[in-house]
Amino acid sequence: MNLINEWAFIGVFLAVAWVLPVLPLVVSWVFRPRKPNALKLATYESGVETVGDTWVQFKVQYYIYGLVFLIFDVELIFLFPWALAYNQLDFFAFGAGLLFIFLLADALIYAWRKNALEWT
């Protein structure tokens, strides 16, 4: 099986897998009752009328976690080809990988020491 064929399977899979969650929704759309009213369609929060806007400013902490995650994610992507070829590599390659992971750990230590990982 060549490469494009492999991915043709994924493509067909994607096309078929779409149908599977949509089908029960369609069946439900046919059979379910429809009696909406203003109260029913109100936002369900604490039992009282919703106050204020939902889409407001959020904690900056989520963003910092997101940033730290992004940087780690990119570094991990670099490590995958290294790990994949590791069988055929010599000690020099191990050293290069070591240095790379060391710098990764360095970034983690910095974030830790600067309290960027505290959930406040």
Binding site: V27, S28, R32, P33, K40, A42, T43
Partner: peptide
């Protein structure tokens, strides 16, 4: 679940 009313909040 299929025969339940499906509520999409107005907002």
């Amino acid at each position: 679940l299929i025969t339940k009313e499906d509520i999409t909040p107005a907002a």
